[in-house]
Structure formats: structure tokens, C-alpha cells
Design a protein around this nucleic acid. Structure first.
Length: 270
DNA sequence: CGCTGACCCTGACGGC
DNA sequence: TGCCGTCAGGGTCAGC
């Protein structure tokens, strides 16, 4: 479900509701996430004050005056604000009750998401080896080109690898390759420097525009404010198999790469 | 180290 | 209407 723009939209949606509030109680209804939720997180978080809500890659970082919550939404996770007495449904696994009378709720039907506590989140094993942020200063065509030398994987799988660059999921990988005019099957190590310049620009552009639109809602994504994302209307290839390319009218094709669907225009992308 | 494929889990949807 | 197969925006891990 959520790629970087959806995670960022979620972060922005919840931050105003929880920053500066005190956690009065934490309820974990189901500990069976991607990794089991550790025993004792309820006790560690009770009474803590939330400082801020940040993000690294697709992880939401809820910083308190003690531990930081490292939250991942997986494929189907979402976070939203409800009143204390709001009834929960089957997939509402974690509630963080606040002294404001509101509750931060984590819902995740497929339970691919995760929930950890850490004093120093950036050195947590899940985060420490991640590649640069695509919207940050270290990320550019030069970086991608250098990193790709000698790599035989397809360029699409290459940019979806979080050790290369974070936050580029299946939708925006297809979209940015379209925008840069690169065939997704091309080997990463056999792609020229100037193409990586175009690709880095495309990734930044796509992600920034998607954040501006509040993310992409394909079926069930809603930001912290309950609004869907509107970027779907701007998708050029993703989920458009059999439709016409808006640029050249060629039929959009789909195929599978690394067990994920890739969409592209064989005439615009070479 | 790099790459591939299995796997984790539930729900929605299309075909029959 | 109901059953069944397929697919889904995430990522880790074992094995080669």
C-alpha cells in the first residue's frame, strides 16, 4: 500500500494531533506483525511525551522523551486519529491513547507492518544500512550511476532496492522509468550516466508531486486525516495495462519482474 | 557480495 | 449466490 509519498502523507496527517501530547495508555490487541511486538512496549511508552513525528525511508519515527517508535506500514497498514471511545475493528492492532482525548490507531489487515522501540532509531538494524533519501542532497544521477556499476539486475529492481535508494516502491518505480524514458528491463550496470541523471530527476519529481497530491489511493489508502490520495489520476503507466500511452498512443504493457508487476510503454521507453 | 525465488497474511475481484 | 484462483502499494531470508 504505502510508498514514500503515502508514508509521508500519513506522517503529516498525524503529527499535529500527537506532537506535544502525553501517552496515557497503549493497547496492543495483536502482537503478530512482521515481527512480534515486544512485550513491555505498553509500559515503556506510558507517561511519555511525544516530541515530533519524523520519517526515514518508509518508516514513521514517533519520537518521545524516552524511546522512539519505529513504525512500518507494510502493504496494508495505516495510522489515523480516533476518539478514545471509538470501537475498534478486527485489524486495529495497536492503540496509543493520548491525554488530549484522542487515540493514535494502527490498522493493518495483512500484518506485514512492524512496530519497534529504540533509543537511537537511525542505528537500529532495520534502518542503519538503508540507502539515501531520494529527496535529500546525497541522491543524484552521479550516485545512482556509480552505485550501479557491475550490477546485472534490471534497473527497475535496482531502484526498488532500499540499499540503493529508499522509498521507491512498485508504483513510482514504473512511473519514474516512464518519465525518464528508460526500459525497465535494461540492466542497471549497462545504463549510461546521462540516463541516470534523467532517472534521478524523474524519481524526485514523481515523489514530490505524489506527496503534493496526498499520495496514491489504488484501493484502500487513506492519510491520517482520512482523505484518499489523488495521485492515481496522474499515473502514466502503473495499473494501465491495455490502455493507450498518453504520449504516443501505444498500448501499455505489463510483465513480472522479481515477482512484482511492471508497467511500461515499449515505444517511449528504450 | 549479488541475485533469485519462497514466504509472510488477509481481502478484493473476476470467472465460472 | 458461491466457490476458486489470482493478485495486491512491503520486506526478509535462505540458498546458490
Amino acid at each position: 500500500m504505502p510508498e514514500l509519498p503515502e508514508v509521508e502523507t500519513s506522517r503529516r496527517g498525524i503529527e499535529p494531533w500527537i506532537a506535544g501530547t502525553r501517552i496515557t495508555r497503549v493497547v496492543v490487541r495483536d502482537r503478530r506483525l512482521r515481527w512480534p511486538v515486544a512485550r513491555g512496549v505498553e509500559r515503556k511508552l506510558q507517561g511519555r511525551v511525544v516530541d515530533s513525528v519524523g520519517r526515514r525511508a518508509k518508516y514513521i519515527l514517533i519520537r518521545t522523551d524516552a524511546d522512539t517508535i519505529i513504525l512500518h506500514l507494510g502493504m496494508t497498514g495505516s495510522v489515523f486519529i480516533v476518539d478514545h471511545d471509538a470501537p475498534s475493528s478486527v485489524h486495529d492492532h495497536i492503540d496509543i491513547e493520548l491525554d488530549s482525548g484522542k487515540t493514535l490507531r494502527f490498522r493493518d489487515p495483512r500484518r506485514f507492518g512492524s512496530f519497534h522501540l529504540s533509543k537511537d532509531p537511525l542505528t537500529h538494524p532495520l534502518l542503519e544500512k538503508l540507502g539515501p533519501e531520494p529527496l535529500g542532497d546525497e541522491f543524484d544521477g552521479e550516485y545512482l550511476w556509480r552505485k550501479s556499476r557491475g550490477r546485472k539486475v534490471s534497473i527497475k529492481q535496482f531502484i526498488m532496492n532500499a540499499h540503493v535508494v529508499v522509498g521507491v516502491g512498485n508504483i513510482y518505480a514504473s512511473e519514474s522509468l516512464f518519465l525518464a524514458g528508460i526500459n525497465p528491463k535494461r540492466a542497471a550496470g549497462r545504463t549510461a550516466r546521462h540516463r541516470y541523471d534523467a532517472l534521478a530527476d524523474a524519481i524526485r519529481d514523481i515523489l514530490a508531486r505524489a506527496i503534493k497530491a496526498g499520495g496514491t489511493t489504488l484501493r484502500d489508502f487513506y492519510g491520517g486525516d482520512g482523505e484518499p490520495g489523488y495521485f492515481k489520476q496522474q499515473l502514466e503507466v502503473y495499473d494501465r495495462e491495455g490502455e493507450h500511452c498518453r504520449c504516443c498512443n501505444t498500448i501499455i504493457k505489463a510483465f513480472v519482474q522479481g515477482q512484482r508487476s511492471t508497467y511500461y510503454c515499449m515505444s517511449c521507453q528504450t
